[in-house]
Design a protein around this nucleic acid. Structure first.
Lengths: 228, 228
DNA sequence: CTTCAACAATGAGAACGTGCATAACGGGAG
DNA sequence: CTCCCGTTATGCACGTTCTCATTGTTGAAG
């Protein structure tokens, strides 16, 4: 499950982020209107947790926009300190799925999200096929090649998972870094740790089958291609 | 046996909860319609004790919905202060298993539940097989290895039981803590009590057979794997 | 075709974090 | 009071992540 948190207040943002990570969600972060807008447009999420009081614009505009060009199938949950009822009404009118007044407990957030999940998907298991005979099971956090287990570390698994969720799209090191490590704001790092992880993934999977599907896009980043 | 209590009146809720815990049920709690809805969908219960006068929605809707997508095999027992007969009729029509008008005695509740259990399972017990030759008997709260008794403490048993109910899923410490201790608000992740319980379970079971099935997933949590 | 610069892949190991074992603590039940 | 269970505390060992130096690869320009 892929969540975007749109909230400018840092400590709250981090708290929620941490909690969702622990609950095994994939989490992206946005602190400003611009950031949020960009991410919502580019990626597809299962949930968007949307604060209304944002620097740079009104959160409701994001919702309105996302619903208009109906690319975004995410469920929106509106978080706001404004206790005003009309916000709630407006939000729900615009197609928000739920509304959570601050302050809220993390448990409450979780149960709202699960309720929506239930409405949307049922209980089905999340599996992704890739390469030629590989399968990733998100709930069990396992990779299999024809029923043999392939063991990856946490970072390797998360990285591969993220690439698979964006099959056929090139992801830059910056995008990957941002998603996997939260905020790498400053240094367009001289580090190559992502390359290293990619290499290790290739090595481990390579023991079972060729890893052509995991392509390097020179000068940009990496991409997982369809396997046919 | 796994029970969900759906009741907004706190003192009654707690009283029932306490009683069932002592009667060795696994108990989950919901105080609102939303909470209940989420839990019913996500988990599978043996019993749902359902209050009809709920904040956020009509309890009967829960029953109706649960029966429609017939994932939920729980027996529903309706608790309500509304002495009205038509509620009773409606409830039974919708597939409730029994009806208990408030106020009721705990003994009465227990005997209704036992009656239903007998009707449902006959004399047969609820058993889960795991590892290689292990068997968990949920009704007797015992573990056996080829007919030898393995004695676990309550917490150990509950922990193992919960992991078994979610076979092949990785559960984080947060998720485990949440379900075994009711509502843990913050992630006081500086505690390692779950690790200790896991270790003790491994130690006790390990005297009989290898405990590979109880896997550590580094950086995430624990998982019980299929034993084939 | 050769050269060169930019970029990616690799191997080794340092730094870090996580989980496990062991032991001690503390509170509730009898 | 005593015992036992659940929890906390702590040190160690090992797996994971990241850094760094080096080698390999690519593509454009001469």
């Amino acid at each position: 499950m892929h969540v975007l948190i749109v909230e400018d207040e840092k400590s709250l943002h981090q708290e929620v982020r941490q909690f969702l990570l622990q609950s095994q969600y994939l989490v992206d972060s946005a602190y400003t209107y611009a950031e949020a807008s960009e991410k919502i447009f580019v990626n597809s999420y299962d949930f968007v947790l949307l604060d209304l009081g944002l620097p740079g614009g009104d959160g409701l505009d994001l919702l309105r926009e996302a619903r208009r060009n109906d690319r975004q199938e995410a469920s929106f949950i509106i978080l706001t300190a404004r206790g005003a009822i009309d916000d709630r009404v407006k939000g729900l009118d615009l197609g928000a799925d739920d509304y959570l007044p601050k302050p809220f407990s993390l448990m409450e957030l979780q149960s709202r999200m699960q309720a929506i999940t239930r409405r949307k998907f049922g209980l089905k298991r999340q599996e992704l096929n890739f390469g030629n005979g590989f399968q990733l099971d998100a709930t069990g956090r396992t990779i299999r090649y024809n029923d043999q287990d392939v063991s990856l570390t946490k970072k390797e698994f998360d990285l591969l998972h993220y690439l698979l969720l964006h099959k056929n799209r090139v992801l830059t090191r910056l995008q990957l870094g941002e998603h996997l490590w939260g905020n790498v704001l400053e240094d367009d790092s001289d580090s190559n740790y992502i390359d290293v992880h990619i290499k290790n993934i290739r090595k481990k999977l390579g023991q079972f089958a060729p890893t052509d599907f995991l392509e390097t896009v020179r000068g940009i980043g990496y991409r997982v291609a369809d396997s046919n």
